[in-house]
């Protein structure tokens, strides 16, 4: 199994998951593996909506503090795959996960029945396709995740909200209107607010599902720049139907087709020298 598995890090020069995993993260709290070690690994992952099998036996490694992009034609299961990582499918009745997504360094299976989805979502954040800020103040949007974790000290909340807004490149625009409704922000600002909201709880993996598909080109460029910076703090898994975007922001690219993982590798290699015919057809625009 181990040998036949395609790993995103296969062509990277540093680390496999044998490398020592003890390192102090920037925030000084969490021990994390060195960059590029496996943060998560899907193994034989299948997913069913009722009788419809939307994911078929997916094997993929997500390297620590790298950006991994998922590309593929519409309906191939990118969102479905992404939403397995934070157990979003548990909200939909009649769905079933088979196989595993191992989560490191703890090494447990994210999609196991006995793992609480709430626990998973507290460690793996998500940014959605359409900006979905709460109709509350900017401050309360970012503070919500911390409040859920029982933080109520005003000074601590303010400090953390500022840090999250800075990480999401929104602080300068928002600092004078923290109490204004989040709905007064522009679309691009709302999406960065959603990123700040997810970052505030210091997730270990941040999932993005086509985060720029509802935004104009300028807002899109800002988000892309932001994602490229985020790789220093958090492991990123991003779904995009925009291949230029994948090329611009990601370190590794995985191509999916009809619920299967066709190919994965260094982004530069996938776009210049794909090894599978289907990948080549897709990136040269022959379908999709």
């Amino acid at each position: 199994m181990e040998t036949t598995m395609s790993t995103a890090a296969d062509s990277a020069t540093t680390g496999g998951h044998e490398a020592p995993r003890i390192a102090i993260n920037m925030d000084g709290h969490r021990e994390t593996a060195p960059r590029n070690a496996a943060k998560a690994r899907a193994e034989g992952l299948s997913f069913h909506y009722g009788a419809h099998r939307a994911l078929k036996d997916i094997n993929l490694e997500i390297p620590e503090r790298m950006v991994t992009a998922l590309i593929g034609p519409s309906g191939c299961g990118k969102s479905t795959f992404l939403r397995c990582f934070n157990r979003m499918h548990d909200l939909t009745p009649n769905t079933r996960y088979d196989g595993a997504i191992h989560f490191y360094p703890d090494d447990f299976n994210l999609v196991a029945k006995d793992v609480d989805p709430i626990e998973v979502r507290m460690r793996i954040g998500m940014v959605f396709q359409k900006p979905n800020p709460f109709p509350k103040s900017i401050f309360e949007n970012v503070a919500y995740g911390l409040r859920l974790r029982g933080v109520s000290n005003r000074a601590l909340l303010e400090e953390q909200v500022e840090a999250a807004l800075r990480s999401a490149a929104l602080w300068e625009e928002a600092k004078d209107r923290l109490q204004a409704s989040a709905l007064t922000l522009s679309g691009g600002q709302q999406q960065r607010l959603c990123i700040a909201r997810a970052l505030a709880t210091r997730p270990e993996i941040l999932l993005f599902d086509e985060p720029t598909s509802a935004l104009d080109p300028i807002a899109t460029a800002k988000i892309e720049e932001l994602i490229a910076q985020l790789r220093d703090q958090v492991t990123v898994l991003i779904v995009t139907h925009n291949m230029q975007q994948a090329a611009r922001v990601s370190d590794f690219t995985a191509f999916m087709y009809l619920g299967e993982l066709v190919e994965v590798g260094d982004t530069s290699r996938i776009f210049t020298n794909p090894s599978k015919k289907a990948t080549e057809d897709y990136i040269t625009g022959r379908y999709g």
Binding site: I118, R121, N132, F134, Y144, L148, R149, R197, A198, T201
Partner: peptide, 22 residues
């Protein structure tokens, strides 16, 4: 909207927290 519920669930809220806070 479902998107608002998903946003709250995505941050680790329980069903009751999603209901009472949002």
């Amino acid at each position: 909207p479902r998107a608002i519920r998903e946003a709250a669930y995505g941050l680790g809220a329980t069903r009751w927290e999603v209901t009472k806070d949002h």
